[in-house]
């Protein structure tokens, strides 16, 4: 009986859904999504919520929900959505893409450009291939690469404070 109780106790801890405390990259990525959005102007949209959608795998666990529960972006409460396929994305303001296939990413970028959506990803070559913000971690520090032309094409205006700390692509040159 005692053994069973201990195992049950262990499993209770085991099932807890928190992310590993030391995963600073994940925490920073989670934070950057909202912080980037606050420096970007969208064409006026009739939604009363700011929608952030995660496309494909969710590496954050419950961190995004916990972090953005009480936040506001452009004075709107935040709604988080999780999509595994592009068809599930629907209307959204920001799209964080974790797709591994370049063709699938290209399709998502195309969709986002047509619908005025901010795209963010840590995939290599993302900004050059039309994504708007690429997040890199190099030697344990974050770096931001912005495809300004892609943002304009999507109808988004990126604020100077964000552009000044990023590597900005004009056209698709590295």
């Amino acid at each position: 009986m005692r053994m069973v109780l201990w195992v049950l106790g262990l499993l209770c801890c085991v099932q807890a859904p928190w992310a590993w405390a030391g995963d600073e990259e994940r925490k920073l990525e989670a934070v950057f999504i909202g912080r980037f959005a606050s420096y970007i102007e969208w064409p006026a949209k009739p939604r009363d919520r700011f929608v952030i959608t995660l496309l494909d795998d969710n590496p954050f666990g419950s961190l995004l929900d916990d972090l953005y529960r009480d936040k506001r972006i452009h004075n709107k409460p935040i709604e988080l959505r999780y999509a595994t396929r592009l068809e599930q994305v629907g209307e959204t303001d920001a799209l964080f893409i974790t797709l591994t296939s370049s063709a699938a990413r290209a399709a998502a970028i195309d969709y986002a450009q047509r619908n005025g959506i901010l795209t963010i990803s840590e995939a290599k070559g993302f900004a050059e291939s039309g994504g708007i913000i690429q997040l890199d971690f190099i030697e344990q520090k974050a770096r931001i690469k912005i495809n300004h032309g892609a943002a304009l094409k999507s109808g988004l205006r990126i604020g100077a404070p964000l552009l000044t700390i990023a590597t900005v692509l004009r056209g698709d040159k590295p």
């Binding site: 928190w18 405390a21 030391g22 925490k27 912080r35 974050a142």
Partner: peptide, 29 residues
């Protein structure tokens, strides 16, 4: 565990309040 979970969110909230320039100086694991 609850305290620890809160701590991860607290640290993220702390990052959220910092200027972007500072976030680029955070050394990750």
């Amino acid at each position: 565990a609850a305290l620890a979970g809160d701590k991860a969110v607290q640290e993220s909230n702390d990052y959220y309040r910092r200027p972007l320039e500072q976030l680029l100086q955070v050394e990750t694991q």
